[in-house]
Simulated scan of single mutants.
Amino acid sequence: MDLRQLRYFVGVVEAGSFTKAAAQLNVAQSALSLHLRRMEEGFGTQLLVRDRTGVTLTSAGTKLMHHARIILRQVSLAEVELTSKIKSPSGEVTIGIPSGAARVMVTELLASAKERLPKVSLKIVEGMSGLIEEWMNAGRLNLAVLYRTVESPGAGKVLATEELCLVVPPGQPPFGNTIPLADLHLYPLAVPMRVNNVRRSVADVIAQHGCALDVRFEMDSLTAIISMVMDGKAYSILTPSAIQREVSLDQVRAVRIVEPTVQRSVVLATNPRDERSIEVIAVHALICGVVQLLARDGAWPTTLPEAELTVPDDRHSRVA
């Protein structure tokens, strides 16, 4: 028995004859008869009594008719619900975003979600990158913005590439616009804990070039790190996105690290169990569009992958 046989069975019963049902269902009368005979053979009982005036149900046929209507109704409801969800995703999606990235993308992301995905509820979990990665590995997030080395971005969608910079207190000469990597050891640093990706990215490059860092303070609080720099108590190594607000207010300065530059990839990872979730897929696409929008508008000082640079400049195209 399959759904087609059930539909044919109900069609014949409701039409009252094979001839009328064949015309209504647009199926040959011989095909209908064959399907009904196979159903009766499969159940091992007669379902219909056939005569010149049409068909009538046997007691077994009456029972099947009751179940068939329920089954077909449920199938129809499922089709409507799933089709509607594809057209208009709904549900809850939890996203982990590191503190630095959250500062530049959350406002735009929530505004775009309200416009483009009104039936999707976004839960934003903000924290230092090491914590976000732990939560993602524990399966507590549907999506996560993670940081990776440029050479090994790992699984996930590469959204952009960021450069790290030395964050210095305001009004402290003799800083220019750049500083060589080898000179970083001259400045006492307040940096994230060792599990943080910023710390790992810098440590890897430092080790490769035989340099050193003067780490005085370790803390997993972006706000506390920036406050220490603003107060002139330390320097730090962060991305421009993490301090964009303070730079615009002349509360700190960003000095580009060179010889060589220190870069990392911004990656959007999906929990493997959610890869086919309609709402997660929709939010994934939305995040990609928001990052492209912010990068092109200069709101996020970052570099997009080459494949993203040809995306049209229409606002709705960018976040669709």
Rank of each mutant, 00 (worst) to 15 (best):
L268G: 06
V262F: 14
V229D: 05
T270I: 07
E218H: 08
V205D: 12
N197L: 05
G210P: 05
R216I: 06
A207T: 15
A269T: 03
E275D: 11
R296G: 04
I287N: 01
A242G: 09
R296Y: 06
D214N: 06
A207G: 07
S265C: 13
L238M: 13
P272C: 12
P260G: 10
A224M: 13
Q292Y: 04
G298C: 08
I206M: 14
V202D: 01
E246A: 04
V262Q: 11
V205F: 09
E259Y: 12
C211V: 08
A282S: 02
R264Q: 12
L222T: 05
T223Y: 09
Q251I: 02
R200L: 08
R256L: 12
L213W: 04
V205H: 04
V291I: 09
R256M: 14
D250Y: 15
T239Q: 12
I225C: 02
A295F: 03
G232Y: 09
E279H: 05
A254Q: 01
R296I: 08
R245K: 09
H284S: 01
H209E: 07
L293R: 14
Q244S: 12
S201A: 08
R256Q: 13
E275P: 04
A295D: 10
V291T: 08
D250R: 14
L294C: 09
E279A: 01
A203R: 13
I287M: 14
A285F: 12
D214T: 05
A299F: 15
H284T: 03
P240D: 10
V258W: 00
A285H: 06
V202G: 02
